[in-house]
Design a protein around this nucleic acid. Structure first.
Lengths: 191, 191
DNA sequence: GTCTATAAATGGATAGAC
DNA sequence: GTCTATCCATTTATAGAC
């Protein structure tokens, strides 16, 4: 509940994260942030002189979010499928019905115009996420709970592409497409 | 070879399509087009008064591209896997090593700010593509060439999400991630 | 930390001459 | 079809007062 007692800097990052998920990094402005927060653009420049600074802070916020969410999932003494479901629910939690996508998908879409520092951060975040999913898959296969061929890293890639791609498609085709994609993926992994 | 004899209007659409694939619809400007073509912004406004007009023309160009590519693949008397590979090669043809993605992925990323007409066109294009892939998958399953559970439409969704998602990821992680994703998908379908 | 004011650049768009 | 010229809004960014 400490989320209610955020300082201004955290408020800015938090709102910018929402706009990143709905519009993408290049398509929200300091004006958007200022209007919503009831302050001026200049105030935001005080906290983040250049937009690239805000972008780096956004990447750090996503990293923090991953860290907490992944730790919570890892510690829960659940089946591999339960963990995958928890991951999916984490992704959907901020997106469902709101036309938002994974923030990393948004950053990938704008990669051509991102500052170098953000590209590097994005790459690390993606890799961290893929390794997290690969570990769950490997555990599930060792348990005879999940079935798949090849390396867990490669299977993790398919899983993550499916989840994030489904979110993107849902903005055009409605939320049911997410259910379809998730159900089909689960059916495959259960053999 | 008639591509060399394009009139200006076609040149504009052709270049805009490239910029769409690399930067997204909201992130290329009439100025970008004008500079590259060696004409002024006003000339482009003559052909496409508003950017939304250009956007609609882009959707039509993509539809035309689909029509040709899908017809060619359908008519070839090949296995289902050959057809899937031809589809993948079509996607990769414009993207590989150039940091470009599927134009429909680019449009999806910007869907929050697209004019209504483009959203409708995008939806139709997506559906057409999914049905095309679903038909190939169904044919392959009927032949005992491919193996998968559930409906061909749902499996087609996974396949398309994987191909396009891999392209997006490759801009950050390099082209090898495409090979990994495609290989893993093929292995699954071959049972 | 927040404001006013302003700069400098860019993007979409139009009018009218050639 | 293309140009020059111009308009207006927006965006990023800075300076300096409170």
């Amino acid at each position: 509940m400490q989320t209610r007692l955020k300082n201004r800097k955290e408020q800015i990052v938090s709102l910018a994260l929402e706009l990143l998920k709905s519009k993408g990094f290049e398509n929200f402005s300091y004006q958007d942030l200022a209007k919503e927060l009831g302050i001026t653009k200049a105030s935001i420049h005080h906290h983040f002189p250049k937009k690239a600074d805000l972008g780096v802070a956004l990447c750090a916020a996503i990293q923090e979010w991953h860290k907490r969410a992944f730790a919570k999932i890892t510690l829960a003494d659940n089946s591999a499928m339960d963990k995958l479901e928890a991951y999916i629910n984490g992704l959907l939690g901020f997106a469902c019905g709101q036309s938002k996508v994974c923030p990393l998908s948004s950053l990938q879409a704008d990669v051509a115009s991102l500052p170098e520092e953000m590209k590097k951060a994005l790459k690390k975040l993606d890799e961290h996420e893929l390794t997290f999913i690969a570990d769950i898959l490997e555990q599930g296969r060792a348990n005879n709970e999940l079935m798949f061929k090849g390396s867990a890293q490669h299977q993790a890639l398919l899983f993550v592409l499916t989840c994030k791609g489904a979110l993107q498609y849902s903005r055009v085709h409605g939320g049911s497409i997410i259910d379809d994609a998730i159900a089909q993926t689960k059916a495959q992994l259960l053999g």
